[in-house]
Amino acid sequence: MVNIFLVDAPAQWDSVVVELRGVEIEFVPSGREGQVESMFLPYEPGNKQVNVSLLVGGDILPISRREFQIGNITKATLRLGENNFLYQGERGYPLRLPNGQTDFSGDLSIRLEPGISYDVIIDFDLEKSIKTTQTNPLAFSFQPTLDIYSGIGLGTVQGSISPTTLQPAIYAIRDSDSLSTHMNASGTYVFRLEPGSYTLFIDPKDEAYVADTLLNVQVTEGQRTTADRVTLSRR
């Protein structure tokens, strides 16, 4: 069984709603090396509009699940529709896909064995996907940026930040790579990461507060690490 999940690294805006059509999986059946097959797994609900900004603090969106024969998954492609919007206050702004592109892919390497359930996680990084192109009137560019990976071998980091009225960006940094997320209304954030040592950098996104850093946060396969609670200080 293969389960497809969407998680989010939301940005500074009130909400971002995307039209989610589904995910296409490319795989090579066992014994047919070189023969790539594709299967489209639609997002089944009739309402395809998904507020991805709500997927924080460990919340995830199940997109689809399907039985696959033994073989290797080599790629996953998230397919969006054209009705995508950013909301700030009571105002909505259309997010137009670049050059009409609707498919956004990532390579995978998952060997499917009988009797095992596998998770494919699509991390939609809104902080990197949406840029402000002008301020008056307000306008945005939209270039969906995804990390697509297997849930196998990952560990989890969970922490909390106050004050909860802020909307800080939290970055997990290892060597030259980084992932970002935000916290939910109670101040909780969650990362799913490969094992290793990470630096967590908290950017308050508010000039009245000082950024903070947690060093040497250890991630262990299959385990949850609780990071120290961070209280951001005023300048």
Rank of each mutant, 00 (worst) to 15 (best):
I60P: 00
R174H: 11
R224W: 06
G34D: 01
F27Q: 04
F142K: 07
E37C: 09
T199K: 13
D175E: 15
D228C: 04
D175F: 09
E26P: 04
I121Q: 02
L55E: 04
S141V: 07
I73R: 09
E19Q: 13
P98W: 11
R21Q: 14
R224T: 15
A185L: 11
A208H: 12
V18D: 07
R229V: 07
Q69P: 14
Q134F: 03
E67K: 13
I25R: 00
P195C: 06
P94N: 04
R192M: 07
S105P: 13
V17I: 15
F201D: 03
L112W: 07
Y171W: 11
T181Y: 10
G57I: 09
Q101H: 03
A185M: 06
L179T: 09
P204G: 06
G222Y: 10
E194Y: 09
I122P: 01
L232E: 08
W13P: 02
R229L: 05
Q69I: 13
R65C: 01
P29L: 08
R234H: 02
V28N: 03
L232S: 05
G81P: 07
A139K: 11
R96E: 13
T226C: 00
Q158L: 13
G92L: 03
F201N: 04
E37R: 15
Q88F: 07
V17W: 12
G46K: 08
S109E: 13
L138K: 11
T156E: 10
V2R: 04
T135Q: 12
F68T: 06
D206M: 12
P29D: 06
V16K: 10
N84F: 10
Q167K: 14
S64M: 04
F104R: 01
L6A: 04
M1W: 03
S15E: 15
G34F: 05
I202K: 07
L97A: 04
V36K: 13
N99V: 06
E26L: 13
F201W: 08
D14K: 11
Q12G: 00
L214M: 10
G58R: 06
L126G: 02
S38I: 01
Q134P: 01
V36D: 04
T199G: 01
V17F: 05
Y171Q: 05
G89T: 10
Y149E: 03
I25Y: 09
V120N: 00
P114F: 03
T164R: 14
L54W: 05
F140A: 05
P45E: 06
F142R: 05
V17K: 14
F68E: 02
V217D: 06
Q88H: 09
R234V: 12
D228G: 12
R192P: 01
L95V: 08
V23T: 05
A139T: 00
